[in-house]
C-alpha cells in the first residue's frame, strides 16, 4: 500500500449511473488485478474503496456506480483535479491459481476488476471466457472492451432486454476449469452453488480503513477470521462460510 496524490485524467459516464475515471500517478503499488484503492473525498470522513479495473505505467482506471454522497461527488469531478489515494490495497486475484481456461463472472459494478484480470490471464497464456450480468440493456458496460481483448463474452440481463435472459448462472458455458467471480453477494452465492470447479470470489464489505487496522470488515472463513480489506477481498471457494 502507498499513499499518493493522483490527477484525474478523464471522468465519463458509461451508463446512466456508472462512471469511468482514470487517475494519473504512481501505479507501482498495484501488484494484482482485483486490488482496490481507497479515495479521500473533500467533506467526507472515511475514504471510499473502489476496485481497480485496469492499470499501466502511468494511470489506473476505476469504474464506479453513483450510489451515495461519495460517488456522487466523484462524478462531479473534472479532469486535472487531484485526489488523495491509498493504492494497492487487498490481495487481488492470484493468476497462478487460475486454470488453463478460466471463466470470469461479473455482476454489475463487480465487472470492472475482471477486466484487468482477463488481461492478466491472457498475458499468462490462459484462455478466458467472460460472463457479464446486468439488470437491463441500458446498464451494460465494457462488453466491447472484453471482446476487444479477444475474450468470448456472454452478456446476461435479468429482464432479457439483451443477451441471455436471466442471471449470470444462466450464461455459464459448459467447459472451463476454473472461475473468478465478483458481484453482489446473492450472485456470488449462486455462482458458488452452480459452478462445479474451484474458483476465487471477490467480496465487498463496509470498511473503515481499508488496510487492516480497524477490523471493521472481518469475516469468518474455514481458514480463520479474515479482514476483507487485507486478507481479501478475494477468497478461495474452499474457505468460504456463507
Amino acid at each position: 500500500m502507498k499513499q499518493g496524490i493522483y490527477t484525474i485524467g478523464h471522468n465519463r459516464p458509461l451508463t446512466a449511473d456508472v462512471w469511468e475515471m482514470t487517475l494519473l500517478g504512481d501505479t507501482t503499488p498495484i501488484t494484482a488485478p482485483g486490488q482496490f484503492i481507497n479515495i479521500k473525498l473533500e467533506g467526507l470522513f472515511l475514504r471510499r474503496p473502489i476496485s481497480v479495473c485496469d492499470w499501466d505505467g502511468e494511470k489506473l482506471t476505476i469504474i464506479y456506480k453513483v450510489v451515495g454522497r461519495g460517488t456522487a461527488q466523484m462524478s462531479r469531478m473534472a479532469p486535472g483535479e487531484k485526489l488523495d489515494v491509498l493504492a494497492g490495497l487487498g490481495n487481488g486475484f492470484d493468476v497462478q491459481k487460475c486454470g488453463e481456461h478460466t471463466l470470469v463472472i461479473g455482476g454489475g459494478v463487480g465487472v470492472p476488476p475482471l477486466y484487468g484480470l482477463a488481461k492478466a490471464l491472457l498475458a499468462a497464456g490462459k484462455k478466458v471466457t467472460a460472463v457479464l450480468g446486468f439488470n437491463t440493456a441500458g446498464e451494460i458496460f465494457y462488453e466491447n472492451e472484453f471482446k476487444a481483448l479477444g475474450v468470448d463474452t456472454v452478456v446476461t440481463t435479468v429482464d432479457g432486454s439483451y443477451g441471455v435472459k436471466g442471471f449470470v448462472t444462466h450464461g455459464l458455458p459448459e467447459r472451463y476449469d476454473y472461475y473468478c467471480a465478483c458481484g453482489p453477494l446473492p450472485m456470488l452465492k449462486a455462482v458458488y452453488n452452480a459452478a462445479p470447479t474451484s474458483g476465487l470470489l471477490s467480496f465487498e464489505e463496509r470498511m473503515g480503513c481499508g488496510f487492516g487496522a480497524c477490523m471493521g470488515c472481518s469475516c469468518e472463513t474455514k481458514y480463520g477470521n479474515k479482514r476483507i480489506c487485507v486478507d481479501g477481498p478475494v477468497l478461495e471457494k474452499e474457505e468460504i462460510i456463507w
Binding site: L44, F45, L46, G70, E205, R206, M207, G208, C214, M215, G216, C217, S218, C219, E220, N225
Partner: peptide
C-alpha cells in the same frame, strides 16, 4: 472474539460509527 456481525462501520458527518465488538 470475532466481534459483532457486519456491517459494523458507518460514515457520519465528521466521523464514523464502529461496532466491531472487540475482535
Amino acid at each position: 472474539r470475532f466481534g459483532n456481525p457486519t456491517p459494523r462501520i458507518a460514515e457520519c458527518n465528521a466521523g464514523m460509527i464502529n461496532a466491531v465488538g472487540l475482535q
